[in-house]
Design a protein around this nucleic acid. Sequence first.
DNA 1: TTTTAGTTGGTAGTTATTCCCAGGTGGTAA
DNA 2: TTACCACCTGGGAATAACTACCAACTAAAA
Lengths: 177, 177
Amino acid sequence: MGGPAFLGKQWHARYRAQRVAEFGAYCREQGLAVTPQRVAIIRALLSAEDHPRADQIYARVRRQHPHISLTTVYRTLEQFCEMGQARKVTLLHEGARYDGNITPHHHVLCVGCQRVFDIALPEADGLLHDRERLGEFVLLRCLVEIQVLCGQCRRKGQNSTGARPRRQRPVQSAAQS
Amino acid sequence: MGGPAFLGKQWHARYRAQRVAEFGAYCREQGLAVTPQRVAIIRALLSAEDHPRADQIYARVRRQHPHISLTTVYRTLEQFCEMGQARKVTLLHEGARYDGNITPHHHVLCVGCQRVFDIALPEADGLLHDRERLGEFVLLRCLVEIQVLCGQCRRKGQNSTGARPRRQRPVQSAAQS
DNA sequence: TTTTAGTTGGTAGTTATTCCCAGGTGGTAA
DNA sequence: TTACCACCTGGGAATAACTACCAACTAAAA
Ligand SMILES: [Mn+2]
Ligand SMILES: [Mn+2]
Ligand SMILES: [Zn+2]
Ligand SMILES: [Zn+2]
């Protein structure tokens, strides 16, 4: 107990149900209208276990909601982050990825396939000895990113990581011409 | 000793001198030409203490090198990352930021002004109990991002973080018409 | 039901980055 | 020293990922 732990399917299913159920109340509390678009987007986000990008959420929502616009998806995801109903995951410089899991947790990134996994890391949370300040800085949050190579990528990626060979003038065949 | 520690000016000056001196040899070792552009870019990167973006490096390099192109700056910074002479810092979804400091260290991000500071965090490096695997994953690296509010931003930012007020229909003056 | 602040969906930008390729250059070998 | 050429560069065009704008629409207060 206490060590790094991945979050299971069961936990995820229960968490999703809870959050979807509470969503309407949460919006009203914040003075936001409960529109079909917002409901569809939070459902898609909470059903995803892959930290999807806006365009992926868009594709998934469109299956039930063919008229939704990409602009609305971008806008809404950003709103969810502002209101604390989603997290933006910034491990890579590609499109922003969103996380519907707002419980405290950290991320494991496979540098090969760039998939992102959730991990609970209780020992990280005491990292700063529960202090509230660090010099002039007021501490807010501490996020850990663990870079790994997943099973799949380890098997495939036999690409040598060594320095690339020095450039070589092609052998000038003396017997030419 | 052993706790979080910021890196000083002295350390930085010495480190920069060392790295600039070694740069030519390092390129030749990798089979890369030592061009004036590459030298100018590594110097600019190592002189920066602010984790600059490509366009900022471009602006600084252009002072000595007015003909350099932005494309070359992007290309070269990316090469440096590939060859392990720079790190890409991905704490935010804005332009990518580059770090000439390739010694193991972590980052402190002010969520107000978005400045990034280096920090040594020895206790973080033992976070995973020096293990090499985590389930199916081969561990490579562990990066910590500490989100803070810096002194400046704390003083300025008195903007309330509470829920925004519920929408209010303007009071319908009963005495109207 | 009426009213309206809040919300949406196209379209047209914008920003950061990458692609392409003709012309230039550092490094090697003679 | 010089010739050679694989590698490198600069500028423009292209792309990806947002972001601004605004007229039409709608959730929800009254
Ligand atoms: Mn997550
Ligand atoms: Mn750094
Ligand atoms: Zn992988
Ligand atoms: Zn600040």
